[in-house]
């Protein structure tokens, strides 16, 4: 009776895993290695000298610190404003009835019917007349528009998935409408909304095209600085160190938003 179930070796999976590791993980490991390298001259396969020398040098640069501050301020401002105007709107879409509700809900898709950079150029045409080119608030506005769809659609789904009966039960035991929202609706929808806010923060932090078109060179975010490092900076390690720094928010997002991204509803949000 010793029938062991022999699972067939999953060769397809192993081949895919190896290829994807080489193509996706390997290049990032190379960048990581460069960041902690003091000397790596051709044609040595491994660096001649590891070390943190270029971390000190990169972090001693004024333009790096200005960019970090600019990026963090921008991302915080945009996410803050976006949450402030989008979350009440999301609640209204999810729970209230008003004229034109459906058409307004789908109006947020408008930006996705057009190629993004073309749209940015068209917006830049408007900003030109308003003297917003090269200003902080010009960049805020253009990045704010980019967050609207996610910051409304994901929280709407979150609010809608809160069981109405749960809210009614709270009314039943004596909570007024505002107390119900605060003690029941918000905590229930909280994790998904937090994921949306996080995604919006990270997306803004990495937004390159709007910042480059509207903001550069006056407003220099980290990705914009990175482009100039790639184009004009002969010291490779500066770019590598900056890459590692830049990736930190992504890493945090990866930790928290993985479940949301892996769930089917996320892909359906993209029309899958």
């Amino acid at each position: 009776m010793a029938t062991l179930v022999h699972r067939k070796t999953d060769w397809t999976g192993i081949v895919l895993a190896v290829v994807l590791t080489l193509v996706i993980v390997f290049p990032l490991i190379v960048v990581g290695t460069w960041a902690f390298t003091n000397v790596w001259r051709y044609p040595s396969v491994i660096p001649q000298e590891f070390g943190l020398r270029f971390w000190y040098q990169t972090l001693a640069r004024a333009d790096v610190w200005t960019s970090i501050t600019t990026s963090l301020t921008l991302a915080t401002t945009v996410t803050g404003i976006s949450a402030l105007i989008c979350l009440p709107a999301a609640y209204a879409f999810a729970r209230m009835d008003f004229p034109g509700r459906d058409i307004l809900f789908f109006s947020f898709l408008a930006g996705h019917a057009f190629p993004k950079f073309g749209l940015l150029v068209a917006i830049a045409g408007i900003f030109l007349q308003l003297n917003l080119i090269g200003t902080f608030w010009g960049v805020v506005l253009i990045q704010l528009v980019g967050t609207l769809l996610f910051m409304i659609w994901i929280p709407v789904a979150a609010f809608q998935s809160v069981d109405r009966r749960m809210e009614e039960a709270a009314r039943d035991v004596g909570a007024g409408p505002f107390r119900v929202f605060w003690s029941i609706t918000l905590p229930q929808a909280g994790p998904t909304i937090a994921a949306a806010v996080l995604l919006s923060f990270v997306g803004t932090f990495y937004e390159t095209e709007g910042a480059w078109l509207i903001g550069a060179p006056q407003v220099r975010t980290l990705p914009v600085l990175m482009i100039s490092f790639i184009n004009n900076q002969p010291v490779i390690q500066y770019g590598a160190v900056l890459s590692v720094l830049l990736w930190v928010p992504s890493f945090i997002a990866l930790m928290f938003a993985r479940r949301v991204v892996n769930s089917g509803s996320f892909a359906r949000g993209f029309g899958g």
Binding site: P27, L28, V31, T208, A240, S243
Partner: peptide
């Protein structure tokens, strides 16, 4: 992975 890091990795 933001595309700007990808660009740098590509070049390296």
């Amino acid at each position: 992975v933001p595309s700007i890091i990808l660009s740098f990795a590509f070049i390296r």
